[in-house]
Design a protein around this nucleic acid. Structure first.
Lengths: 313, 313
DNA sequence: AGTATATATAAGTTCTAGTTATACTTACCC
DNA sequence: GGGTAAGTATAACTAGAACTTATATATACT
């Protein structure tokens, strides 16, 4: 009961009545427009005034004049009702399996491979489609704060509850070398290479960068930090320019679209590592859409990976 | 009764309950958070679902999962409630004679004279102040569609009901000539002038332009249409450049701020005409504010008109 | 001032949102 | 797989909000 006091000083019905009075100019006219009696309208207005503690109309004049507070209430109330009235029809849309708007985050290294097929699919399931590129870590935060509905990236946020996850594919980390570099067969070849050419790195802000770094330490390589990039294009472009070599993945290379004449992909010597690409959405909020979306993404990634092979792995 | 059917399928209270369930994950938990019983929550949710015709939760799983429609409802409902909760506090602001936001239109030719004093005054009466410049005709439309609260211009919209009007001042139309032109004493001097120099006009979209045009016809002058401008600056600048002469007003000239070395203001020969500057607001919606605002505007215009005289009238 | 038109108040009625009590589901655990 | 704990739905009831009719009071117009 004590809770009730902090409640809203009006409900949508009373706002409808208030607006009807604003339009009609008198309570009596509003009452007949709303098909109710004049005292009901009078009481409803009086109730809002009592609960808000503000007079909305100046009763000393006829037709009624809005007070300062009343004018403000009119602006706000009409906006509020307009939005409220949209909701019902929007809900009905979802019954055809369509959602009014959907926002998807795609990690930079997949955007070239996925943006077009995802958008095409989503257009059939949503009225408004936003596809945002960026880092997985950023997207994870945005998913949790509801600025994104789904993201596709390299972290499945295993530790967080309330999410649904789909594995899209795994891809191996590989060596990306300038065409002129010799073949790298063994770990000692790699160590030698790292003396003559710098390692072009993914920044530690990216999940991929962190994994590469961890692996380098595991291999016992101690390579100074010279170049680092947030984006797959930066890494591949520098390798293509002969400025260094990189540890990356086929899809990252595909993403960058650098000329395949200037680069070679080769197997990483020593223990193999791979990265897992996942899709993450809030638990059961989008019905069938995530499941279908994951399938579309898998198909697109498989197709791209096959193309990616042509680069020369 | 038949009316009731087209009503909104929820009210603000039921949205609060719905959101509490979304956050709590179960109806029972939401009920205790809201300090009510579980069946009440269950019934409230069921009622929204019945009225919207959309299932919001998937009951076959626990904790409850949002359906497609439920996810959408969650987004919309939380936005709607956030706005609704702002209204109460905003209304309270108005009790100190302050209004949360006010939007004022000022006709271009007064903006230099008025913008600073009006803004200063409004800052004491509103939390958010917008002052927009433009043509009176545009502002009139915006006033009626509630995108403006007040405007100051050259039309008092006499024919429209539901508005309050304040006269700010009258100012005479005058001749604006390049410094090198000879004195114009009589109508025949003016006719002669119009053979050698073009008339720089206000566009017919502006109220001032229409009045000037009407007066020219009344004087029997037939002057070809060469230059026309929406803004006072355009007109004055061309006169200052020696490209023509104009029929304008002191405040329009002041507005343009062209060098007084290049221009002369002189009395219009023949019958005198003047323009009336008015302020218009929707009837009794802003309390005392319009009355005070009009006084501020009058003071500012008088001060400017005296300065304006120094230009050389 | 008198009349017509609005608004406020009073008293009674209906209907809704809440209650308690209980039956039914789902999830989980041995 | 059956038993148990936790959650949800349904039924029957109640308090109070939202309306109603009836009537008193205030404002505007002539």
């Amino acid at each position: 009961m004590s809770e009730r006091s902090q409640h809203l000083p009006f409900d949508l019905r009373s706002l409808e009545i208030f607006l009807a009075v604003c339009e009609a100019g008198t309570m009596a006219a509003a009452a007949s427009a709303l098909d109710m009696t004049q005292p009901a309208v009078s009481l409803s207005i009086a109730e809002i005034e009592r609960k808000t503690g503000s007079l909305l109309f100046d009763r000393r004049v006829r037709p009624l004049a809005l007070t300062l507070a009343g004018g403000l209430m009119r602006q706000r109330a009409s906006a509020l009702l307009a939005e409220a009235r949209q909701i019902g029809p929007l809900l009905r849309e979802t019954k055809r399996g369509r959602v009014p708007s959907i926002r998807v985050g795609v990690v930079d290294s997949l955007s070239r491979a996925l943006i077009s097929p995802l958008t095409k699919f989503l257009a059939s399931r949503a009225g408004e489609v936003s596809v945002l590129s960026g880092l997985t870590a950023t997207h994870a935060g945005e998913l949790l704060t509801r600025r994104l509905d789904v993201f596709l990236g390299v972290d499945d946020l295993e530790e967080l509850p309330g999410l649904e996850r789909w594995e899209l594919m795994r891809e191996p980390y590989v060596l990306l070398l300038p065409r002129h570099a010799g073949a790298i067969q063994s770990l000692s070849d790699l160590k030698k290479l790292s003396k003559s050419l710098p390692l072009i790195r993914f920044s530690a802000r990216s999940q991929t960068g962190l994994e590469v770094e961890r692996h380098i330490r595991r291999l016992g390589l101690d390579i100074p930090r010279t170049f680092e990039f947030d984006s797959p294009y930066g890494v591949s472009a520098l390798v293509a320019a002969g400025e260094g070599f990189a540890i990356t993945t086929p899809l990252c290379v595909y993403e960058a679209q650098v000329s395949s004449k200037r680069i070679i992909l080769s197997k990483l010597p020593g223990p193999q590592i791979s990265r897992k690409l996942s899709m993450v959405a809030r638990h059961r909020e989008l019905g069938q859409i995530p499941r279908d979306l994951a399938e579309v993404a898998r198909t697109a990634l498989r197709a791209t990976a096959i193309d990616g092979l042509k680069i020369g792995l």
